[in-house]
Write a protein that binds this DNA or RNA. Sequence first.
DNA 1: TTATGAACATCTTGTTCATGG
DNA 2: CCATGAACAAGATGTTCATAA
Lengths: 122, 122
Amino acid sequence: MGEKRESTGFLIKQRAFLKLYLLTSIEKERWYGMQLLDELRESFKPFGFEPQHSEVYRALHDLLEDGILSRRKIKEDGSKYKEVAVYSIANKEEAKAYKKLVKADLDRCEQLLRKALKDNFS
Amino acid sequence: MGEKRESTGFLIKQRAFLKLYLLTSIEKERWYGMQLLDELRESFKPFGFEPQHSEVYRALHDLLEDGILSRRKIKEDGSKYKEVAVYSIANKEEAKAYKKLVKADLDRCEQLLRKALKDNFS
DNA sequence: TTATGAACATCTTGTTCATGG
DNA sequence: CCATGAACAAGATGTTCATAA
């Protein structure tokens, strides 16, 4: 089950990066896709990174398929005229394990970047 | 001339990363492709990254097209039975400018990774 | 064989279109 | 219109093939 590679050799993939953030947000409270997207965009804008909606949806769908998240469609009655898909953690153990994997890869990537800065600019 | 984007939003691309290292190596002495490849692989192996030969050649060809490197095919007489393509810096100003660009992107990426570690693991 | 390339295949991501409230 | 998806297109990289010496 945990045999999917998150490390693809060079740097971490955007998908894995987003999945990490999504898990952390969803751990805290209920969210739906566009909310999460807006939050992420706001957060990364200073770094010149603005994830696309389809990539965020794909990340959520991945986590659903992995059984880490569950989804419930609800009518935001009172508020709007729309139906949204709200996510919650389905398997805390898996979620934790996945985050641990991604952390290891982030650490590796950080080292690689530091090395590059040192090797080429010192 | 310098209007090609190196920052693609998320993390730096492998191509730009390799170009940076190639320039730094070639600044120091004459090299040819396979030498550079072996050097890079050795250097990154501890980080689980082993660039492919075609990607290194593509990086070299990019730098040629950009006019930053020049190439000279030579017969390594005395040594082997082969012809190699040896590179040298064609335009030091451009090389310096390119490296500066990449450095900025590396810095940005490092910040982004640090942020992710902080936002998700603290 | 080794070094250099090109061609081709795949994987990842961005852009556009479709549907239902 | 907004939220969710899917479909499609483009880009980046990995794998395989071709050629010369």
